[in-house]
Every structure is written in C-alpha cells, then in structure tokens.
Design a protein around this nucleic acid. Sequence first.
DNA 1: CTGAAAGCGCTTACAG
DNA 2: CTGAAAGCGCTTACAG
Lengths: 331, 331
Amino acid sequence: MANVKDVAKLAKVSVGTVSKVLNNDPTVKPKNREKVMKAIEKLNYVPNIHAKNLSSGKTNMISIISPTIGDEFHERLVSAIDEVLSKNGYDSVFFPLLSRDRLERVSSPSHFLYQTDGLIVSSLSLTKMFKDNKFPTPKPYILVDTRDEMNDCIFVDNYHGGVLAAKNIKIYPNSDIYILGGYESDEVFSSGVFSERLNGFIDELVNQRGISKKRIKVIEVALSWKESFEVGRNIIKNQKKRFSVFALSDIIAFGFIEGAKSEDMFPGKDYSIIGYDDLSFAESIKLSTVRQPIELLGQTAAELLIEKITNHSNEKIQKCLKPKYIERKSN
Amino acid sequence: MANVKDVAKLAKVSVGTVSKVLNNDPTVKPKNREKVMKAIEKLNYVPNIHAKNLSSGKTNMISIISPTIGDEFHERLVSAIDEVLSKNGYDSVFFPLLSRDRLERVSSPSHFLYQTDGLIVSSLSLTKMFKDNKFPTPKPYILVDTRDEMNDCIFVDNYHGGVLAAKNIKIYPNSDIYILGGYESDEVFSSGVFSERLNGFIDELVNQRGISKKRIKVIEVALSWKESFEVGRNIIKNQKKRFSVFALSDIIAFGFIEGAKSEDMFPGKDYSIIGYDDLSFAESIKLSTVRQPIELLGQTAAELLIEKITNHSNEKIQKCLKPKYIERKSN
DNA sequence: CTGAAAGCGCTTACAG
DNA sequence: CTGAAAGCGCTTACAG
C-alpha cells in the first residue's frame, strides 16, 4: 500500500503538499495539484483513515446508538439524522445494541464509538451505566427520544401523548379500558417513554374524565407484533361487551387488531383502539393514533449536536416536541 | 486527556509495559500490572483507538453494509452475524445505505468502512460500482444474500425458492396467477434475488406444470407493506373468480392480504397466496411461505469471513443454502 | 505557495 | 520480564 511519502516522491513535491491536495487546500498551485493527482492515480493511493483521525484529532463521523434496528421508528429517525449530518459534512456510523452482550462491549469507554466527533443516542437511558450519569467521553453528545435531566436531550412529550389518547378515546359504560405495552424487559434498554405515556393516559382518565382506576387494566406486552397478536386473541375471549384499548405503540395496536380479528372482533365496532407513533401502515388499517414527529426529532437532534460541536457551546439542552392525535376509524 | 506516557510516568514503568498491560500481555509482572492499573484509574485514562488502529495495523472491527435497516430480515441477519463475530473477538460496525446520497459517500475508497479488518455486504450488488467489480480494499470481504460470481458470496438458492413456490401453489382452472414484487428501483440497491425467485417460479410453472405464460402476470411492487396493501385492494376489484398469488416477500404478502381483506376477500378461500422469508408474523397470519435460513446465512457469512482473515486463505467461496416450503392456510 | 520537521498516541521487535 | 527507540501514516504550524 502506497502512502503519502510514496505519492510525494513520485509527484516530486513534499508530503505537506500532498496532504494539502488531499484536503482540498486552495493554496496549492494547479500544476502541483495535478502532479499529485496523477501520482495518486498511478499508485492507486488511498489515504489511511486511522492516521488521519489520529493526527487531525477529528473523524468527521458521528456515532448513532439505538437499541434495535428492524423497526420503522428507528429507520426513519436515523435517516433523518443522517441527512442533516451529511449536509454538514459529517458521516454517520451506527451502533445498534442488538443484545445484552453487545451492550456490554459497547459500554467500554475505549470503544470506537466514543471517539468520533460526537454521539446521538436514541431511545435509551444508558447514562445510568456510567459514572456521574455521563457518557465516558469528552465529545459532545445528545440523547433523543428520552428525557434525561442530567444530559442534553430532545424528546416528544410522551406524557402529553398519553393525555391526548385519554382525551379522545371512546369509553363505553362500565366497560374495561386496557393499556397495552409498557413492558421494558431491561432497564438500560428502556427509555422510559412507555411509562410516561401510560401515566399521562391514566392521570387524564382518572382526574379529568372521572374514570375509576379499577376499570383500567395494564397488560404488559413487549414491543412485538406477534406477542400483541396473542394478546388480542386472549383478551377477546373474556370480553362480552365493548371495551377500549390504548396501545403504547402502533406495532402493538396492529398485532392486537389482527389477533382480535382472528376471533371475529373488529376495531371501531366491537372495541375502540388508539395506537401511538402513526407508522406507515396506520393509515391503511384506519388506526387512530398519536403521531410523533419522528423526522423532526431526528433533524433537530442532528442540528443541535452540530451546533454543540461547532460552537463548543455548553448550555443545557432540554427540548420537547409535541405529539398530535390523529382520528381514524378504529376509535 | 492522559496518554500512555502520562500513565507510564505515574506508574514508574515504560510505555511499552503500559501497552502490554492494556493488551493483557501475560508477561507483565503482577506488581507492575497493578501499578499501571492504578495509574490508569487515577488519570481516568482511555486509550486512543485511532492511534491503536494505526500502529497495530488492525481494528478488530468488521464493517457490515446493508441496503436498509427497519426490516426484520436484516435485523435478524445482522444480529446473527454480530453474535459470531463477537465470539471471535471482533466488533461490528454498521453502514446501512439509507439513501442514494449516503451510498455515494460510502463508495469512496477512503471511507472508514473499507479500513476495518473485513467487510460483510448484505443484499447488494455494489461491486458493479468499482473497478474490476471488486471493493476498493485489500481487506477480505464476503457478500451475503446475493450471488456474485466475481466475489466470495453466500446466498440462499432463490431460483429454487421460486420453484418450490411453483410446485406447491394451488392453481384454479383458467385462473390468473400473480407474481408480486420484483421491483428494484435502483440497480445498485438491488441484489437480484427477486428476479431469481421470479424466474424459478415461472420456469417451473410453465415447464413442469404446463401453465400457459399468458396466465402469469407480474405486478411490480416495492418492498413495502403499504404499497402492497393498495395492490391488494386494486387487484381484487377486477377479480371474479379464485386466483393465485406468489408474493416475493412476506411483507408484500401481508400487505396484499390486508388490502384484499378490506374488500372482503380472504386468503385460502377467495385466493391462494404464498409468501417468501417466513418472517415472525407469518405463522400468526397463517401465511404459507418459503422459509429462508436467515440466521444460518448470517452465521455462516461471519464464520467464512473470519476464516479468510485468520488463514489468509484465498480460495473462492460460492456457498449456497437451501430454502424450504412451509405450508399454512393461505395456500 | 512549498518544504522540513515535529507531533498525534499507540505497538512492536529487540537488546539486555 | 522491562525499557528505549523506531515506526505506523497522516496533519500542522512555521520558516522561507
């Protein structure tokens, strides 16, 4: 593998000049630039990125950490983030957690992810794992989709989302009201958003709509279509009259609806249901839901991080976006 | 930020010894190891990963490239890959393509992703973008879920998967047979798997089951639940008798089924349908499908890559796994 | 506008 | 088992 020295020798210039050409420094004379380009071409030279990172002290990369991949929420969030980063000259590199084992590896302060120019951490309350509740890095970072008073963060008002669902959900006389979801199997993998939605929902129902707490039943389901399908089937079996459901995610709502359908019960007719997120399928299946501004969340996170990097600003960021209730046929 | 020198000074040893402690070299005397550990603790020392990468010439990281995130197939594939890599002391770093813009950035030979210890490239035929159809890196790599005669690869026999669907699908007298999917909007984003499934299906239908080509209709749909839902609704409108559908992915099958349901037509009753992949929801919705061994695909890819790295072996890899037809109620 | 040289923070033979 | 020193391949003031 050729290096800058080889290129410099062949082009008959100094390594400093080669470096300048590589970095588009406008002070290089066109003639020299051309000589260098030719040498690069001829030697099939590719700059060593690790040397560059080391000597320049920056990477032009931003680490993005998310609990999983494989769901629409994070795909959209991450795409929105990447778009803004890209416009600002940064590239993104992804670290989905995937498993407990990987979480462990990724928590080592010397892991690569802490040595890019900044981090965006999505839907996780990882800071609990570290000393002083801070990530083990001097690099700037921002948390997304989680509220964390000790760190810069941007999130959607999940409590208010729950309130919106409670304000709008149809309730039948003396019927049960189910809350589906909220099960966060592993504390560090959780962001707390589910319990905030749940709290907002219950508070509004009890305090404003005067619903007795006894009528509200929380069913813990993982964020899994399949598991929610099973819940849909099983709950249905014990139901004799119309009831109401607040699913803490559209995924859960969708699974539940299909499970219920398999027992011949239909949303908007045999029961009312409101989901959360407004994912792409929600409109097709006519699911009433609480919409999160996913793209805006990602864009804003990226913009705030870039601002932190460029201005070395240290003011605390606690930004809150608002969700919106979307009425469809299921409620 | 403290560095090895600071640690060495405080621990009263040489930097070489510090480095050995950092890398768990057993030849360090316990006493010295302890002194170093204490100094590390005291100084809050974190090794600079870029310096380490540069001087050691390796990263212990493997780049994983995939077209998208947000789908179950890639989540499972990537998780399986990561598990095997982890057991062998490697960490994985992800580069989903997400967009054309990002693809462009990521195609630069000097991009970080080409300078890890190896690459696994999933569901893409990116090699067309580069000289000699090879990735611009001396590092070993392997392609997954795509057949590429010029490069090492591991894939599932998609042609055979199409044949399996054709062998098993129920066909009604004089009825139409639809193939859904196969639309690959951007050549470099495609892996060619859809057209192989399609070819296997048609060949078997025409040559073995004696079906006239005229009865077979290909409807191009993107790999999108929502778009497939619309197709389900629209096709249904023109259908007066029972028909058959081969969906080139379970996602497409699922969307189609729901769209059809919204017009009161049901799989296994008003039409027959076979999907592809056997994703987690397939069993719940009773979808007959062609199962791909997704985890095995990922594991094997990771194992083969590690073998290439450790043995510097250069023998060509063209590994083919077999799919399996799963009968459920939809067909 | 260019070149010589120091420096980034590690690892790795090698001598002892 | 340890230390001194060279080396990895870049960037970056600085002198000219």
